[in-house]
């Protein structure tokens, strides 16, 4: 009995601790789902007295911010997502399957340097380089710089996926009469597709939330992404208009959520689904 009581007590403490811990994550999310519908929202969490869409009406009136969200952010995050996913897959496949020695060192080296490349410290040289290429104030510049920064880690992760495919799959396809490109397309690609989806979502989220790089590389307000445009909801004095920022933030998170749900529904985040060996 005593033993039983102690067990229950232990559980209670465990759940209490877990709840406390979880609240750190849940409260901001809760705020984000409630505040946008409250015309009198403050930074504290409180239920609106009256459920209203007025905040959203004012946000949609800000064409600069809306255009940043539905056009520029989608273009930049989508472009980098496609570029990163395709290049990382091809590079990982080549690195995994080539007989050249030292591909491990190349992969690890790239990952190491990439943390430097995207860091704030590299912004000046990156700016100068993009300037030299005449790409300042273009979407292409933002896409390229993000892609360069994300690729090494993406290659690193993809390589793990490719390494996990037994070579005999591809060899049996070769013997069956397939060309190398066909082997990649018919055999390797479908098997690493779940991995590619992980990379795609991860790359999209990274660019979607990136502030510094577009802020520095872009000039015209017509090209700024949402991460920068959110500052248009700040007052002249530099304090955020809580109501509008909340509404815009909710809109800002929706595409990421939708992308995640879509990928999960279409492919599932299964890692090595179906491979038995």
């Amino acid at each position: 009995m005593n033993h039983h009581a102690r067990f229950i007590l232990g559980r209670i403490f465990f759940y209490a601790g877990a709840c406390l811990f979880a609240s750190f994550f849940v409260l901001p999310l809760l705020w984000l789902t409630v505040a946008p519908f409250n015309t009198l929202a403050t930074l504290s969490l409180s239920l609106p007295e009256e459920f209203s869409l007025a905040n959203f009406r004012r946000v949609f009136a800000n064409t600069f911010a809306i255009r940043a969200l539905v056009q520029n952010s989608v273009l930049q995050a989508g472009g980098a997502m496609v570029l990163v996913t395709i290049t990382a897959t091809l590079a990982a496949y080549a690195l995994s399957r080539s007989s050249i020695k030292g591909t491990d060192v190349i992969t690890y080296g790239l990952v190491l340097f990439s943390s430097v490349v995207t860091g704030t410290a590299a912004m000046v040289p990156i700016f100068l380089m993009i300037h030299g290429m005449g790409l300042i104030d273009t979407h292409v510049a933002v896409i390229l710089v993000f892609t360069g920064g994300l690729l090494p880690a993406a290659i690193f992760i993809m390589r793990d996926f490719v390494d996990s495919i037994p070579r005999s799959y591809e060899e049996s396809a070769l013997v069956a009469g397939a060309s190398p490109w066909r082997v990649f397309n018919d055999i390797a690609l479908p098997i690493v597709r779940p991995g590619m989806m992980v990379i795609a979502v991860w790359a999209f989220v990274n660019v979607w939330g990136g502030f510094l790089i577009p802020f520095i590389l872009l000039r015209s307000s017509g090209k700024m992404p949402a991460a920068v445009a959110i500052y248009s909801f700040y007052s002249e004095a530099g304090t955020p208009l809580v109501t509008l920022t909340a509404a815009y933030s909710l809109l800002y998170t929706l595409p990421v959520l939708l992308l995640y749900l879509f990928v999960n529904w279409k492919y599932g985040f299964r890692f090595f689904g179906g491979i038995k060996s």
Binding site: P166, S168, Y169, E171, S172, A173, V175, D186, I187, P190, I191, G274, I275, K276, S277
Partner: peptide, 13 residues
């Protein structure tokens, strides 16, 4: 050639 591999190498997908 037709070849049977030791691990069968059937395509899982």
């Amino acid at each position: 050639i037709g070849m049977v591999f030791q691990d069968y190498a059937l395509y899982p997908h």
